[in-house]
Design a protein around this nucleic acid. Sequence first.
DNA 1: GTATAACTTGCACTCAGTCTACTTATGCAC
DNA 2: GTGCATAAGTAGACTGAGTGCAAGTTATAC
Lengths: 214, 214
Amino acid sequence: MTQQNGLRERKKQRTHETISNTAIALFFEHGYDQVSITQVADAAEVSRRTLFSYFPSKEDLVTHRLADHETESARVVRGRPSGQSPLDALREHYLDGLARRDPITGLTDLEPALMLYRLILETPSLAGGMLKFKDNGERALAEALRDTAGLPDFTARLAAAQVMAVVWTLSLANREAVVAGAGADAVYPDAVAAAEAGFAQLASGLGVVAAEHP
Amino acid sequence: MTQQNGLRERKKQRTHETISNTAIALFFEHGYDQVSITQVADAAEVSRRTLFSYFPSKEDLVTHRLADHETESARVVRGRPSGQSPLDALREHYLDGLARRDPITGLTDLEPALMLYRLILETPSLAGGMLKFKDNGERALAEALRDTAGLPDFTARLAAAQVMAVVWTLSLANREAVVAGAGADAVYPDAVAAAEAGFAQLASGLGVVAAEHP
DNA sequence: GTATAACTTGCACTCAGTCTACTTATGCAC
DNA sequence: GTGCATAAGTAGACTGAGTGCAAGTTATAC
């Protein structure tokens, strides 16, 4: 099996990281589209072919770090204490993420994460690729809702779509604020308020917001 | 200016259609990934280079037909009668689309539209590309809400995200049902019920649906 | 009827991603 | 330690999408 020790495993892990770090640094310096796979491979001192055995695509060099979080919402829903509603579990988890400055919420001061966000936000092809993560997360969440909250399939999909839309919008706004230069601590109060508003809207609807206007 | 008549214009339009039709037919027959741009160009009797002057990318050969509808929600909100809430306008428009069997709702029996949907649903790269449309539509809707309903920017984005999530989910479900072989008329009652449920959820929240469970 | 501007084409190019055959390094049995 | 099976890495050719350019062709304006 894949052990955590062994020279081979450790070397692989190091190579993996070296390639990814090298790539992100180069992309950040010259722009994603201005750097070719060959340049990344050269800089990381591996062959082009080896690079592709570690990362299936150029995009993956950047986005693989976020892939782990793809199904986070689904996991939260599945792992919630019995008696708690899915929505409450997600709300609690998200607010906790903000408090912990979990980079996935967008609220962070960690330089590597900021680099990543800046890169993604200013590179259309990467931003487009991220939508797939959102979509996969939505599907996983729908399944979790169906399985653990006893919702009919379509109802679950509808709810999952709405929840993911809100969570994604919240995190995107945080990333934008933080990339624009506001420190995480400075953004935190607004982020919490926005999250509370978002989840409140999920729970009780757009009724107020979208009511007839003057 | 670009007149609607003139031999040149008419020819261009015909070429545009010929290329697109040829491409979709080939893709449908052999699979999107199995057909190369060169094959499409040959079959449409234009040069590769000309094909690319009509369509910026391979994806566009398929998706350009849906691009017009990208900002449909935004237009509906902007053009609503005064006194009507954005949400009511969107709901009404969507239900009307279902009744008219507007292909954009997913509910149609028209063979060309079905081909398109089948192709997109079974080709991951195309389905992924569609997410960009959703995202652009969301952005446009957010602006429309901000401009015409006097919502603060972030509130508008949040609302737009939720609305688009629901509308998209509804249409996707319709496309799936119709592609699976159910006729549009057979699906219609369910589609209406789903739409009503979706918009009701938007208006008054997931409260009921996501409440504590047994 | 000709000058001009718009459209088309062929060709060469870059870059992402894949395939194949070959070499090197590692883990393990002894 | 030595040898061997196997995993990982390399080189180089290949396909297919997309672009840049210069020369050719055709509708249109005058």
